[in-house]
Design a protein around this nucleic acid. Structure first.
Lengths: 244, 244
DNA sequence: GGGGAGAGATGCCGC
DNA sequence: GCGGCATTTCTCCCC
């Protein structure tokens, strides 16, 4: 099929969503440089002028451009080329289109914002509100304590009035989580001139290496899972239940 | 427009790419739980049964399912519902479709794999091959040295035969980069019973806080940028040059 | 499949 | 804008 350049330009001008199925080669230059040989792909340009190019499989786009990109679709030596440029971030892309399989434009409106439960923030809220999840006598002082060396999830005193820094992870805690905890504890000791500050990782799981490093550094592990139920849906919606 | 359930099922059966423009609500349950109220979106199902749902703006999909997901499109109380389930990872999604704007299926073939230059690996290769970028007399021993506590980018001796651990970052080095370096240096000291091991961060930029922490930990910074030119293209392709 | 780490990460929030 | 950090991160590589 033919791709009507005028129709393409008009769609972009109206901030419509443009979807093109085609065979193409891609050259990108910006933060890095890449080349992708010929194959069938789905090209999407959104209303904010974000570009996504997807291969037939995989979750992440194989090439993309940030919002605010400018597009110039031209015919060069009988072949379609989509020139993309984002001056603001100095990124450029050329899409050499050898065959167009489909072209489509959609006018879309979407004011909705996603509600999400089960994040690390939800987890630190839970720990703050239920300090016994850590241990009897734990008294949280603050959430998201800002230090120059990072934000601390939960911060408080234990029953012996020793400062405790807690790092929450919603997934399996890894070496990086210990890195973070070590950085916070070191900084708190410096800032307050303390000899002893406890460090605790709260997570549903922890890898063996990570647990070893945690112990080597004199820290502790608490097995705690993030809350993740939108109560409204467990009551009102039955559909998901059919699958579980 | 109407969405033909039989056509949808047939497309999936053929491993075609399915693209649906519609207005919908979305409920997801799995690693976390989310709800997204009504709005216009683009739904994409790929040949590997990855699901992507995109709002009209933004780079990342607002909801998605991993490859290998099963789909069941049904009419419930006169409304279309797309039930999605991935038993393997215990993830589920329901898409309540109130209006279908477009439906499209594409048979796609794409054997190509991307070539990318400018990664951190390219940078550590460059440092390994040009040790003077670090300092006179630096002698690299290995790349990607595996320790139980992580992989070291470049590892070698300085002119005084002191061990040096180098962590390369292709972007502005941040606190996490120092964390990583600290972990490697600490572990190397332990493993080899050494008193002194130097740590160096090689990156094009470093944030002030990070530089401070780096110095506090007794480490050093080298300003080095990653290589990023596909020589073939800077010679053969003229198109990108038109924009730069 | 899990562990470890990069990514052209993206997105969010704070200053 | 930069900084710091979580992410339903995703992807790759290696054990």
């Amino acid at each position: 099929m033919e791709l009507d350049i005028a129709a393409f330009n008009e769609a972009l001008q109206k901030n419509a969503i443009v979807v093109i199925g085609c065979s193409c080669e891609i050259h990108y230059s910006g933060r890095a440089e890449s080349f992708l040989g010929s194959g069938d792909r789905l090209i999407i340009i959104k209303s904010d002028k974000t570009l996504l190019i997807h291969q037939p499989a995989g979750s992440a786009p194989i090439n993309y451009m940030k919002d605010g990109t400018s597009y110039n679709l031209v015919k060069e030596e009988g072949k379609l080329v989509l020139h993309c440029s984002n001056i603001a971030v100095k990124e450029y892309m050329d899409v050499f289109i050898s065959k167009v399989h489909s072209f489509q434009q959609l006018q879309m409106e979407d004011p909705a914002k996603i509600q999400l439960v089960g994040s690390e923030r939800d987890m630190s809220d839970m720990v703050y509100d239920n300090p016994n999840l850590i241990e009897p006598g734990f008294r949280p002082l603050s959430r998201e304590e800002h230090t120059k060396y990072g934000f601390i999830d939960v911060f408080g005193y234990d029953k012996n009035n020793i400062l405790v820094v807690i790092e929450c992870k919603r997934y399996t805690a890894d070496l990086k989580a210990v890195d973070q905890l070590q950085r916070y504890v070191t900084k708190i000791k410096q800032l307050r001139g303390l000899d002893r500050v406890r460090g605790i990782i709260a997570a549903p799981e922890i890898s063996p290496n990570t647990l070893q490093m945690l112990k080597d550094n004199g820290f502790e592990y608490r097995k705690i899972a993030p809350p993740k139920y939108l109560e409204r849906f467990s009551r009102d919606q039955k559909s998901l239940g059919d699958y579980m």
